[in-house]
Amino acid sequence: MTADRDYGCRQALEYFEALTGGETASDAKAQEHLKACSSCASELELRSRLRARLKAAVRGELPMPGLHDRVRATIRERERAPRSSWLPNRVMLAAAAMASLCIAALVVTRSNIAPSTLAAQDEFIGAMQARVAAVFGVGLGDHLHCSWFRTFPSLPGPELTSALGGEYAPLAKIVRDQVPDRFRLVIAHRCSYRGRRFVHVSMKDDVNLLSLVITDKQAGESFPASGGTVAGGIQLHHAGVDRFQVSGFETADQLVFLVSDLRPDENRNLLAALAPDVNRVLDSIRKG
């Protein structure tokens, strides 16, 4: 095939693909091409057969026999008693709330297991940083210094996000939107640690603490060139030490970290979900 013919094939195949999705107007050239090009005709025929086989395979999977009846019964139950049926749930919720309080009272707080003096805290941070590649230690250090050793007020004030500054303020919402509702915002500010400035958003629930940490790159600072995962076109990198997980990505001039005591896959996936929106905010700040 010549280059022109290849181009014509691609165009024709794209047209017929779009046609199956109802997204294109009639294209006489593509129709003409199809009549003349046996390669495209057989390719389209193969695609059509593949779709038919896929459809048959997936549609062959049926739910367990009782599902229709269970759904129907649930709907009819709700028809008969649309309000009162919620009562057991409210009772259960109240019981669950009480149970949570009891469990929370038994949970060992971070302050009980963390070093108590500033010198001991710095030593702890240094020891943790030394066990990951230097670039990961940047985000880990700020998370430990600023969030992990801190006792948070039970009800943070509404002014919390104002400490982020206008251009970074959307970050708090971006994080809020991606974490389960049990997490609450405990830090949204700009801070510095060991002479380096950070933008820092932290959220916690009864068990876990997580931080989105952003800082300007310093000379030669970068994540390893190989490894990591790609999500939404953004290369993500990961490291872990003890209970701490550090995932990160970089822009032209900034490093972005998610540091937490979540499971490794949870931390990685949370950053994967956050990265496109965080990237967008940083990009818009960069462009002014």
Partner: peptide
């Protein structure tokens, strides 16, 4: 997925 911290972008390598 969000409730369980399992996000749509779960693939190790896109």
């Amino acid at each position: 997925w969000r409730r369980r911290f399992r996000f749509p972008l779960l693939s190790d390598r896109e």
